[in-house]
Computed example of a mutant assay.
Amino acid sequence: MATKTNKPEGEMSFLDHLEELRWHLIRATLAVVIIGVLAFIFRDFIFNQIIFAPSYPDFISYEYLCKISQVFGSSNGCDTEMNFIIQNRTMAGQFSAAIWTSIMTGFILGFPYIIYEFWRFVAPGLHPNERKNSRGFIFVSSFLFFLGVLFGFYLIAPLSINFLATFTVGDQVKNEFDISSYIGLVRMSALSAGLIFELPIIIYFFTKIGLVTPEFLRKYRKYALVIVLIVSAVITPPDISTQVIVSIPILILYEVSIFISAFVVKQEKRRLKKEKHLRTGA
């Protein structure tokens, strides 16, 4: 296969693009694996101090969640008597939990590098001024992702664990949660929130390719509100105060996305006007 250096810039074939994408994916996967191996080595700290932390009554979030819930006239989050145990029912259950948790840790901590490899793949197809205006892409997307992960871990996960651990249908039923179920809840809370917080970045690219406009986002704001409430209801316990607490940051992100979309449209109009001026001036 001919290499990229034998062709003028911008004339890579489809197979060349696939080859380039393959190496970007390989490097991103390798970063996740390396971090995952380190996470597996330090699994005792990760499980005892991070993964299982929301199951402890003295977890830092519960005191603040109780005060916030009381503002809304609810007591959800104030009962921190964690009357449950986490158990393993399969031979390879704990080993499997350690492996998948290490991979999840590798993905979360390696997210900036994954975004960096993605950016290296798409950057050559952008205009020079677009690359200049998007220098902070890696930092902003990583910051939003980590902010979402922390939001999910310190807010959604403890709210869900506290509600499900204290909910009962009778005194005869004891809560004995399987380790895969518990870790799955923590993982879903953190990763889903991290990806939801990428909304401004997604809107940025959708605006760039013309799929959305600020007018479209403003027009369907009320429908977005309904969707946000539905998402909040799905990823949180059925408590109105919890849903309000979770939905507020998402609504703020939506409004920020409208601002970003309007900025992109403005920049695109300015670029087209400048190109037209150069053509007519020539």
Rank of each mutant, 00 (worst) to 15 (best):
Thr207Ala: 15
Phe205Gly: 06
Ala233Arg: 03
Tyr154Glu: 08
Ala28Cys: 10
Phe118Asp: 04
Glu9Asn: 08
Ala193Asn: 06
Val173Cys: 06
Tyr62Val: 00
Phe167Met: 12
Asn48Arg: 15
Pro237Cys: 00
Ser69Cys: 05
Ser102Gly: 01
Ile235Thr: 06
Ala190Leu: 13
Ser13Phe: 03
Ile26Leu: 15
Leu217Lys: 05
Val173Asn: 12
Ile201Tyr: 07
Thr3Asp: 14
Ile26Met: 13
Lys273Val: 08
Val231Tyr: 09
Ile240Leu: 12
Tyr223Val: 11
Ser142Cys: 10
Glu275Gly: 02
Gly36Ser: 01
Ile258Tyr: 03
Ser241Ala: 15
Leu217Trp: 05
Arg221Asn: 08
Glu9Gln: 12
Leu272Ile: 10
Ile114Tyr: 01
Pro57Ile: 05
Pro124Asn: 03
Phe45Cys: 07
Val212Leu: 13
Arg271Trp: 11
Gly73His: 05
Asp79His: 10
His277Arg: 14
Gly110Phe: 03
Ile68Ala: 13
Ile103Cys: 03
Ile179Trp: 00
Leu15Tyr: 10
Leu147Cys: 15
Leu21Phe: 09
Phe40Cys: 06
Leu251Cys: 01
Glu176Ser: 15
Arg22Ala: 05
Gly73Thr: 04
Ser61Ile: 02
Ser181Val: 13
Gln267Pro: 04
Lys4Val: 12
Leu217Ala: 07
Ile179Tyr: 07
Ser192Phe: 09
Glu81Lys: 15
Lys274Phe: 09
Val149Thr: 10
Ser141Ile: 08
Phe197Gln: 02
Ser75Val: 11
Pro124Ser: 01
Leu150Met: 14
Ser261Ile: 04
Ser160Lys: 07
Asn76Met: 13
Gly93Val: 02
Thr105Trp: 11
Gly10Glu: 03
Ile86Tyr: 04
Ile85Trp: 09
Ile51Cys: 06
Arg22Leu: 06
Leu21Arg: 04
Ser55Pro: 08
Ile99Gly: 05
Phe72Val: 06
Ile46Gln: 06
Ser180Tyr: 10
Ile258Gly: 08
Arg120Met: 13
Val264Trp: 02
Ala193Cys: 15
Leu144Ser: 01
Met12Gln: 15
Leu211Lys: 14
Ala97His: 07
Lys132Ala: 13
Ile245Leu: 00
Ser75Glu: 14
Ile35His: 01
Glu81Gly: 11
Glu176Met: 15
Phe153Asp: 04
Met91Arg: 13
Leu272Cys: 06
Ala2Cys: 08
Val212Tyr: 02
Ala262Val: 06
Ile230His: 03
Pro54Leu: 07
Phe121Ile: 00
Phe95Trp: 11
Glu63Ile: 09
Ala31Pro: 03
Leu30Gly: 13
Ile230Gly: 03
Phe95Ile: 13
Tyr182Asp: 05
Met1Lys: 09
Ala157Ser: 11
Asp239Val: 02
Asp171Tyr: 11
Phe40Ser: 08
Asn48Ser: 14
Leu217Glu: 04
Val37Trp: 04
Gly110Asn: 03
Ile201Trp: 07
Lys276Asp: 10
Asn83Ser: 14
Ile34Asn: 06
Lys132Gln: 12
Ala262Gln: 10
Gly110His: 04
Val234Asn: 01
Gly136Tyr: 01
Ile202Gly: 12
Glu215Gly: 14
Leu109Phe: 12
Leu225Val: 15
Ser232Met: 02
Pro237Gly: 00
Glu11Met: 14
Val37His: 01
